[in-house]
Design a protein around this nucleic acid. Structure first.
Lengths: 344, 344
DNA sequence: CTGTTAGCGCCTTCAT
DNA sequence: ATGAAGGCGCTAACAG
């Protein structure tokens, strides 16, 4: 059977023929090379449209070593904090006709390495990564091939990479300070999963360090870990609250976890914030849906995506001035935290 | 400055040289062509690893017309229902080394068309779309280039495409029936934005049609529209509840909207479900965070992604049997709906 | 300003 | 089972 492919495989020569010029000229027009006579340019454009010509990206990439494609490897798309970042990243890059290949690593740096290899094979010009913990092979491979990379959700980077994010240690400290200022002395944290997650562990460390600065030994601070799910937060909160000396304030590694923690309290008749203050992280949409609404720290997910995009869009020289971008964190005070009660 | 690019631009000839065979043989090994002597295959593999060889996807795609890349165009990644679908789609495809290029259209089919063009340029082998309303040019272009496409979140497709999803009309009807069975007669809906959104409008139509079947004229059913945001749901609910004859039950086009609606009720001292029943849609994580928890319909986002992936991974012949996949919808009854009160 | 020429790295007949 | 040769569609010199 013969398919009607006439217009489907139009190539540059076809356009050239119709426009009455050489393929090279067509190429120039298509690439906005200014040194083309306006009339010719016009004829070429017309011919291209008429034939429904679409450039062959593979051939272009092969010849020019420019793929106009970037790769992103995030832990998961199932968490709004990452989905939002990718959303704004993609939106900005699309304006410049740069495509985004997305990969999820499930917080596993070995999987991340595999995906990075695939991205290299696809010829991406740069890669967006989350956090600053990666297999050395991953970064070595990218550096070797001269593929730019940017870390996000962190402000730490390498000699050759860049970072767009915030300081997770400060974030943890910010939460600690706020809770301490409220008079709390019996504190705990539900930290997310800290293994292979430098953001989660930095938040924990920042929290603990700041507490120590206020005279609260880390030995007296219970740390629970939990998946970034409501269920996980609920279970972790149960562990914390049924232990011998339950906390009067809990810092959660994510609003989702905090939402679960609050749910547990509801079920058990524990009053938030009267009996226990719950502090979240991320300032997701859910932070306004819990009862009471969550006090939290806003993570600039959208900005990170946009700014990372700007970095990737910049020329190598411009990038020099954009290699570290620490975004500020905003404390969002709502109703899930309150001063420590007398003898609480 | 000379960079250490020695190992970075290894190509097939280099591997061939080291393995002591021809480039053609290396290519065969790399493509799992069985007709290669095991010893040679072994030498080639070793050489490739040693040199850190990575295939050049562009050259491969150019020569073989197979890019092992698919495109996805969703309205937004900022809504969990789409992010989750993409997540599972990507996860399944990654297992087969197929890359996913993601694009967001902001519910605009003109933007969608632009992005589809870019995807064609990138050489994607297939495209995943949301809903069944698209510009004719979009589908024509894909068909002409023999690029397979799949609609998701709908069960309607075209002659040449495929669909993995559910029947939005049935979904609306399901909600209507449930509410009517509860005795409600004064109903309303917050429909999301229905323009260019066949899923939202089908849900609305299914809802209204089913109500008429139960003797409730659509003229008596208020329909508000709202963005898929808490804020939007709240505002729409205000409009509905402050109108002359407020409803005793409201079907919302999304759990997010429903969450906003409930928030409005809280603020106004309206009891849910005593004063008004609120019915959501999607069964997102937030459905368990509202007070009361949401009665809703579960949308199989994860399954859609996985099944769409299977379709794309299938051969053209296998696909014949997979062209329409209607997934069932699950009614999730929680506490935000209740029987109509006497004289309510 | 425009055309000609020569590959980019790979896969794929076609031989052997 | 393997090698040699040609070309996928395009852009980048280099001429003119």
């Amino acid at each position: 059977m013969v398919l009607d492919n006439d217009r489907a495989d139009t190539k540059i020569v076809d356009v050239a023929r119709l426009a009455g010029c050489s393929p090279a000229t067509v190429s120039r027009v298509l690439n906005n090379n200014p040194s083309v006579d306006p009339d010719v340019r016009d004829r070429v454009m017309r011919a291209a449209t008429q034939l429904g010509y679409v450039r062959n990206g593979s051939a272009r990439a092969l010849r020019s070593t420019k793929s106009r494609t970037v790769g992103v490897i995030i832990p998961t798309l199932d968490h709004a904090i990452y989905a939002t970042m990718v959303h704004s990243l993609q939106a900005r890059l699309a304006e410049k006709d740069v495509s985004v290949i997305i990969n999820t690593s499930m917080y596993d740096i070995d999987i991340e390495f595999e995906q990075a290899k695939l991205l290299v094979e696809r010829g991406v010009e740069s890669v967006v990564l989350v956090g600053s913990i990666h297999r050395v092979e991953t970064l070595a491979m990218l550096e070797q091939r001269n593929i730019a990379y940017v870390f996000t959700y962190t402000s730490m980077t390498t000699d050759v990479g860049a970072a767009v994010g915030f300081d997770n240690i400060k974030a943890g400290a910010m939460a600690a300070r706020y809770l301490v200022d409220l008079g709390h002395t019996r504190l705990a944290m539900i930290a997310g999963i800290t293994q292979n997650n430098d953001r989660a562990s930095a938040r924990r460390d920042g929290f603990l360090d700041e507490l120590e600065r206020h005279g609260i030994s880390r030995d007296n601070v219970s740390i629970a870990e939990s998946a970034y799910k409501i269920e996980g937060g609920r279970d972790a909160m149960r562990r914390l609250m049924t232990a011998p000396n339950p906390p009067s304030a809990v810092f959660c590694g994510s609003d989702i976890i905090a939402a679960g923690a609050i749910k547990y309290c509801h079920a058990e008749g524990i009053q938030v914030p009267e009996d226990v203050s719950v502090f979240g992280f991320d300032n997701l949409e859910v932070a306004e849906l819990t009862h009471p609404e969550l006090t939290t720290i806003e993570v600039p997910a959208r900005d990170m995506g946009t700014i990372a995009a700007e970095y990737l869009l910049a020329t190598p020289v411009q990038r020099q001035h954009m290699r570290q971008r620490e975004l500020s964190l905003r404390l969002v005070v709502r109703a899930s935290t309150a001063p420590r009660k007398r003898n609480a």
